[in-house]
């Protein structure tokens, strides 16, 4: 990304009249600029990420505290459950320890949680802080806002996923080099959930309606083959599980963690990518509908 205009002189009288030479198109961009409608995208979305970084640079402890939650989960499984549950059948048909089975699922589940809750804070910025009203008075458009906010949620989730993977490796749970791909998997699932979370944030009318989100996220966490394989479900129920975006993330992560790659992974990636793109588009449209009426 290129930087903006060079610093102009400061007028002595204190009256700001130095005028940077602004071209017809604001600075920033990338390939998206040529593909998207100019009225909703100015290629400045990362300026909003900068704002989040600025905020959290003063509250970095809040960020770090998020690393601990998945750690506690892993410890609980390592210390507790693994003594009760023996080996299970892994994605490649060979036996694996239960902790190694659950760990990649927990990694993507925590990426999902991080993304959903981060994007729900958009509700407050939208309804009470009126942040986006101010942002949309600048060259930035609705798609800049959506991409910026989703990017921040994804970055935050990525940070946690990296810490999580580090702990998995330290516990000897990530043995295949493919496990490194757990990070992009977590980023993909975070993008999909952040995009959907942002759409939800624009649809909510009061903070008490956050309960609806919990009511969806919680069962998704429990039933998306997080703790047991798909074979547990009767075939007539499997389609329901397959609708869960988290399921697709977990299948990807579990396969990569064990180093077992198969062609169905393309389908999982496709499902999540379509969800992410669709959510992004709808989120941008919703922001426009609410604020640019």
């Amino acid at each position: 990304m290129t930087e903006g205009t060079p610093p102009t002189r400061i007028p002595a009288a204190g009256v700001p009249h130095a005028r940077p030479a602004v071209a017809g198109r604001p600075v920033g961009g990338g390939p998206l600029l040529r593909m998207l409608p100019s009225s909703s995208y100015a290629g400045l979305s990362f300026r909003l990420v900068e704002r989040s970084v600025l905020l959290y640079s003063r509250a970095w402890l809040v960020l770090v505290s998020g690393v601990f939650e998945p750690l506690f989960y892993l410890l609980a499984f390592r210390v507790g459950f693994s003594s009760l549950i023996g080996d299970v059948t892994g994605p490649d048909g060979r036996p694996m320890s239960y902790v190694a089975f659950v760990a990649p699922a927990l990694l993507v589940a925590s990426a999902m949680n991080g993304a959903v809750y981060e994007t729900l804070s958009i509700f407050y910025k939208l309804r009470f802080d009126r942040l986006y009203d101010a942002v949309l008075a600048t060259p930035m458009g609705t798609l800049d806002v959506a991409i910026g906010e989703i990017s921040w949620a994804v970055l935050r989730s990525g940070l946690y996923a990296t810490a999580f993977l580090g702990v998995m490796a330290a516990m000897g749970l990530a043995t295949s080099p493919w496990a490194l791909l757990l990070i992009p998997t977590a980023l993909l699932i975070a993008t999909a959930f952040a995009a959907i979370g942002m759409v939800c944030a624009t649809l909510l009318r009061s903070s008490s309606q956050f309960d609806y989100i919990h009511a969806v996220v919680m069962p998704m966490f429990l039933f998306s083959t997080t703790f047991y394989p798909m074979s547990v479900y009767p075939p007539s129920l499997r389609w329901l599980v397959e609708l869960s975006p988290l399921y697709h993330g977990i299948e990807l992560a579990r396969g990569l963690s064990a180093g077992t790659l198969d062609p169905t992974m393309i389908g999982h990636v496709g499902f999540l990518a379509v969800l992410a793109a669709g959510g992004l588009y709808v989120a941008s449209r919703r922001i426009g509908k609410l604020l640019l009426s």
Binding site: E3, G4, T5, P6, P7, T8, P20, P26, V27, G28, A42, L44, R47, L48, E50, R51, A134, V135, T138, P139, M140
Partner: peptide, 11 residues
Amino acid sequence: YGRYFGLSRAH
């Protein structure tokens, strides 16, 4: 806010 306009940090 200046950054939202695409202006440089120094500016």
